[in-house]
Write a protein that binds this DNA or RNA. Structure first.
Lengths: 198, 198
DNA sequence: GCGGAACGCAACAGGTCTGTTCTGATAAAA
DNA sequence: TTTTATCAGAACAGACCTGTTGCGTTCCGC
């Protein structure tokens, strides 16, 4: 986004930026693609002149970058009694995010069009995926140190097993709304105990 | 696809249909979207005249339907000694499919643009997802009947846990090539035994 | 050999999006 | 009050895609 420092003149309407981001989320949520979405459509849906969009964002990429920032929820801190509870709490946040249909559509579109928006794709992994994954690793390591989780497990592998079902649902655009707390608890329970008969 | 039965006249070049499907896979694999991909670009990449495409497929949807059919591998039969081995074998097929970059891109694009291609989306779930899921359910049920898998597990839930990590990788477009046999075995092993300390 | 269909190539009108450039009006600071 | 930047709205050329039509050519079966 282009931030300009000037002394005099009319101030930019802050609602314009919000309206533009909301318009992108609405339209992508309705099935538009990132490359296919036109500034005309965005301006129209936002109730804003195209001029105002071009004044703020040089390219569509810049606008999408802002949208990605806006839907990136803060990373919560965890320090519950057990790693098990921390894992469940973290997965619950992930599931909650899945329930935001517009954000899910935006991320699906980004993953599908990664080739067309390499910078967006890079930032998504660096700023959203990586920190959350690192947090999961830390919790799992703690569980091992506490004697709660077997010490011979492959940490990244365990993480994939935990988050996989949730990400797969987001990726396939499943419309079924899961209860975050209950579902995360069930996942952790099953991964802890396994399905095999002792 | 439009199949016409005529008695006389020049025959259609069968290579045209293959070239068109390959062109779609190539272009989508390179980052094109289903809505954004133009018949001009497809014809150009396939080395075929636009006319030939219009003659075969009324709309882009029809062409994509053919492409989806082409990348749908046959459903293998399973009857190994144990449910554990059947599950691993089935997951290995899924992982193998993930390794086909073009097919993965095509499915990612389809999921991202489901709203624009409802018929394609419906067929994908009915013809590709549903039969494979049903097969997984059957194997899990058999494992329960054989006393190999705990009888109190939720079958669809176990299935999601098993296939989730693989689908999540496909959805995120991970470029890392996994060994199908080894990875599927590791997933099944971990899901059977669990990560918890007994 | 001849009719018929598919072939590649080219052209066309109608539509859309982009990026830029005008306007006149509005709002806020100097 | 004057200055200055923003605002909405409209216009423009250039590019692209679509769906259709016409052309002459190539190939296959009758």
């Amino acid at each position: 986004m282009t931030t300009v420092r000037r002394s005099a003149g009319r101030k930019r309407d802050p609602r314009t930026e919000v309206a533009a981001r909301e318009a992108v989320l609405d339209l992508v949520g309705e099935g538009a693609t990132l490359t296919g979405l036109s500034l005309v459509a965005i301006a129209e849906h936002a109730g804003v002149s195209r001029n105002s969009l071009y004044r703020r964002w040089k390219t569509k990429d810049d606008l999408y970058l802002d949208v990605l920032d806006a839907i990136n929820p803060p990373l919560p801190d965890f320090d519950r009694p057990s790693a098990r509870e921390d894992l469940a709490a973290h997965l619950a946040v992930l599931i909650e995010r899945t329930l935001d249909r517009r954000a899910s559509s935006m991320l699906r579109a980004l993953l599908a069009e990664a080739a067309a928006f390499p910078e967006l794709h890079r930032r998504y992994f660096a700023e959203i995926v990586a920190p959350r994954r690192e947090m999961m690793y830390r919790i799992i390591r703690r569980g091992i140190a506490d004697g709660e989780i077997r010490s011979d497990v492959d940490i990244p592998f365990v993480n994939e097993l935990l988050v996989g079902p949730i990400l797969a649902r987001m990726g396939s655009g499943s419309s079924e709304a899961l209860d975050p707390r209950e579902t995360s608890r069930r996942i952790v329970d099953l991964v802890y105990s396994g399905i095999g008969v002792p």
